[in-house]
C-alpha cells in the first residue's frame, strides 16, 4: 500500500536535493560562464537555457524516459523507474533554472568586477571563486529555486519514476494517486506537507534576499 508520509517525504527530499545539487554543480558554472564570456555561441546557449526553463516537465520526463527505456539509447543502464532515473530527469529540469538565475545574479554584480579582480592579481579560478562569493546569496537562492522546482513537479516524476510504492513514489505522485482513488484526505496530507516545505523554502529564500538586499552596494 501507500508508504507512510515520512518515507515518501524523505524520498522526495533526497531525490530533489541530489538533483538540485547536481544541477547547481552544472548550472552555476554554466550561468557564470554565460554571464562573463564574450565569445560567439553565447547567445545561442542562453536561448537554449531560456527555452529549457519553459519546457513542460512532462516533456522533459518523456524525453528522459525515451532515453532510459530498455529500447532506448541508455536502456542498458537500467535507470528507468528508479530513483537515479528520477534524479536525472530533475537535474534536466532544475539546471536551466539555476543557470538562468546564476546568469542574472552574476550580471547584477558590478560589470567591472571581473577585470578588477584580475587587476588585483587573481588568476582565472580565483576570479570565478570570488565572483561566487560575492553573489553567494543569489546563488543560494538559485539552488533553492532549483530544489523547489524539482520537488514540486509531477510530470517527469510520474513518467520516469512510475510512482512505484516504496521505491520511486514521491510527494507529488502520491498526491495524484490518492486523488485518483478519491482518497482526498491522504492527498491533502501530502499536499500539506509539500505546502509546508514550499513555505519553508520560500521563507528561506526571502530572508536570504532581504539579507542580500541589506548587503547591497550603496
Amino acid at each position: 500500500m501507500v508508504d507512510p508520509v515520512y518515507e515518501v517525504l524523505a524520498r522526495s527530499a533526497l531525490v530533489s536535493l541530489t538533483a538540485s545539487l547536481v544541477a547547481a554543480a552544472i548550472g552555476i558554472p554554466l550561468g557564470t560562464w554565460l554571464a562573463l564570456a564574450r565569445i560567439p555561441g553565447r547567445g545561442f546557449v542562453t536561448a537554449v537555457v531560456n527555452t529549457g526553463m519553459a519546457v513542460p516537465t512532462v516533456v522533459v520526463g518523456l524525453f528522459v524516459a525515451l532515453m532510459l527505456w530498455r529500447s532506448g539509447p541508455l536502456g542498458e543502464l537500467n535507470l528507468i523507474y528508479t530513483v537515479r532515473g528520477m534524479v536525472i530527469a530533475q537535474v534536466l529540469l532544475a539546471t536551466p533554472l539555476i543557470t538562468s538565475i546564476t546568469m542574472a545574479a552574476v550580471q547584477l554584480l558590478p560589470p567591472e568586477l571581473p577585470g578588477h579582480l584580475r587587476s588585483l592579481g587573481a588568476n582565472r579560478w580565483q576570479v570565478v571563486v570570488r565572483i561566487w562569493v560575492e553573489a553567494k546569496l543569489p546563488l543560494l537562492a538559485a539552488a533553492m529555486a532549483g530544489f523547489g522546482h524539482a520537488i514540486s513537479e509531477v510530470g517527469a516524476a510520474t513518467i520516469v519514476g512510475g510512482n512505484i510504492h516504496g521505491q520511486t513514489q514521491v510527494m507529488t505522485t502520491a498526491i495524484v494517486e490518492n486523488v485518483g482513488r478519491g482518497e482526498f484526505g491522504a492527498a491533502l496530507v501530502y499536499g500539506g506537507v509539500l505546502l509546508a516545505l514550499a513555505f519553508l523554502v520560500n521563507g528561506l529564500l526571502s530572508s536570504v534576499q532581504q539579507r542580500s538586499g541589506a548587503w547591497a552596494r550603496n
Binding site: 500500500m1 501507500v2 527505456w69 530498455r70 528507468i80 523507474y81 510520474t158 512510475g162 510512482n163 512505484i164 510504492h165 516504496g166 521505491q167 513514489q169 505522485t173 502520491a174 494517486e177 485518483g180
Partner: peptide, 19 residues
C-alpha cells in the same frame, strides 16, 4: 513485488520496462 498506484496502462508500461 512492487505497486505502482497507477492505472492498468501505466502499470503495464512499467512492468514492461522493468521486465
Amino acid at each position: 513485488y512492487f505497486e505502482t498506484g497507477q492505472g492498468m496502462g501505466e502499470t503495464l508500461t512499467i512492468a514492461g520496462q522493468k521486465s
